[in-house]
Design a binder for these strands. Structure first.
Lengths: 111, 111
DNA sequence: CCTATTATTCAAATAATTTTGAAATATGCA
DNA sequence: TGCATATTTCAAAATTATTTGAATAATAGG
């Protein structure tokens, strides 16, 4: 995968509000949450929310669908998957020490 | 783990040069690489290298040890582990779709 | 002590991001 | 159509990050 897209995705998540937005969307699931509702939850203005959602969208981490007057945002599974695959496989080369022990853990369970 | 530390780590990696530096250090292993040698490899000035290495260091992603006139930099295993653990477990809640298929893959191998 | 090498610090300049508030767009409903 | 709601766009201001080059520190070796 294109390294500049990885940088863009990392930058998108590298912000207090945006990381919280993404976390919230993951918890909310694929049906999504209207922008205004996210804004209320996070505690920022509608304008600020649009700005941050645009960043996440451009980075390929969220998707949006209009539903009447609302625009529902949901996590974009493929974008996040690519980021985590890059970080664990390409960047950290699958080393269990670096990869958060996931590989280690699951292997242990398998024994 | 502290969310602001996660944001700092993400921001540290969210830069073309720094992501390449970190990748290079992972490949080089725990013995580390002198700052100047990294700079030569990446193709940036010594001053620029100091700036970026400081960012990575402050974010807890690399460690440094002086060896004579050289300062060797190596990946800081614990910092990266914490970041990836956060992203996969806290943020993405271990959902295989989001987590880069690592969990899925290893489970499949185990069957 | 002197010099060469390696790396960092500093301050100034430049560039990029984020915030703010007003205006605009899109939709639903009376 | 006219009005209310949800969201986005826009431009200006504020903030933060990055680059640049000169100066400074740390060390090895003569």
């Amino acid at each position: 995968m294109d390294e500049s897209k990885i940088v863009a995705a990392l930058a998108a998540l590298a912000h207090e509000h945006r990381l919280r937005i993404f976390r919230l969307l993951v918890r909310a699931g694929p049906s999504g949450v209207p922008a205004g509702q996210i804004a209320e939850h996070i505690g920022i203005s509608a304008t600020g929310m649009s700005f941050h959602l645009k960043e996440l969208d451009h980075a390929g981490l969220v998707t949006s669908t209009r539903q009447g007057r609302f625009v529902r945002y949901a996590p974009h599974v493929e974008g996040m998957r690519q980021l985590l695959t890059y970080l664990t496989e390409d960047c950290c080369r699958g080393q269990p020490e670096l990869c958060g022990g996931i590989i280690k853990k699951v292997r242990a369970v398998c024994k």
